[in-house]
């Protein structure tokens, strides 16, 4: 089951570039939360701070507190530990090119040293079913490489890979921006399915997408969070002028 996320005074830098400034935010458990804003506003940096991927870049720096469930992820544990509890799906599908479909899904467990084949089989099947890919690939799980699938299938494979480690939170960084409309709608259906089980944070530049899948929406601009509220409120009656300008397409 998912857990909530509590962000306090989060600041992030790339070199001297102050990309996130004083972010405070409570993300509810077992719901989908969308983050919108023009490109370069810091929303991607924000989700990368939630599983400490931001700091994989040597010039990056973070201050502030992020609590996932009851764990203070910057003080109580190492990056590896928190990343096992927080799954991530990236903008471009990135299956492991040398691995079969099966090994791609099982990668998170196998590479962490898990070797019980019966259990792995079960988990691979369940994860692929949960990501609505099972029927399309069940016949050549071990024959085909992950890279041989179509773009939309690859992205669902990446979602299955993230689900296989049974995360509490699922971060999605513009998961449909590199996909065609049919694949996009499949991914959106999937998010709708999954949000009862996982806490989902989805970054998107597509406002319709945010409106379709998320209960809560946050609007980012120039490294600050301008407004965070229920999706309905954000899209119908935003309290900040800048949010309204963005929603109505007056800039960005």
């Amino acid at each position: 089951m998912g857990v909530g996320i509590e962000v306090t005074n989060l600041n992030a830098w790339y070199g001297t570039n102050h990309t996130l400034q004083d972010i405070n935010l409570n993300i509810p458990a077992n719901h989908a939360t969308a983050l919108i804003g023009p490109s370069g506003c810091g929303k991607s940096t924000f989700v990368r701070c939630l599983n400490r991927m931001h700091e994989t870049n040597p010039i990056a720096r973070v201050t502030g507190t992020v609590r996932i469930g009851d764990l203070d992820i910057y003080n109580d544990c190492k990056p590896v530990e928190i990343r096992r509890r927080v799954g991530m799906v990236f903008q471009r599908p990135n299956p492991f090119p040398t691995m079969s479909i099966y090994d791609n899904v099982a990668a998170g467990l196998k590479l962490n040293g898990y070797s019980n084949h019966h259990v792995l089989d079960e988990i691979v099947e369940r994860s692929l079913k949960n990501s609505a890919l099972w029927d399309e690939v069940k016949d050549d799980l071990k024959k085909k490489s992950g890279a041989s699938l179509s773009g939309g299938q690859q992205q669902r494979l990446c979602i299955a890979r993230a689900l296989a480690v049974d995360p509490e939170v699922l971060l999605m960084d513009e998961p449909a921006s590199a996909l065609d409309p049919v694949s996009t709608s499949k991914i959106e259906d999937l998010i709708f399915q999954l949000k009862s089980q996982y806490t989902i944070v989805i970054v998107t530049h597509n406002m319709q997408q945010a409106a379709r899948v998320a209960e809560k929406t946050g609007f980012f601009l120039n490294g600050r969070m301008v407004e965070f509220d229920s999706t309905h409120k954000i899209f119908t009656n935003p309290s900040d002028k800048r949010t309204e300008d963005y929603i109505t397409g007056r800039f960005g």
């Binding site: 991530m88 990135n94 990668a107 993230a162």
Partner: peptide, 23 residues
């Protein structure tokens, strides 16, 4: 090797040495 592949491994919580060698 594209950076996306490294990130995919790290985001799964795979230890760095394992991600470098196995991925």
């Amino acid at each position: 090797v594209p950076n996306a592949v490294r990130e995919a491994a790290l985001a799964l919580g795979v230890p760095n040495w394992r991600s470098v060698l196995s991925i």
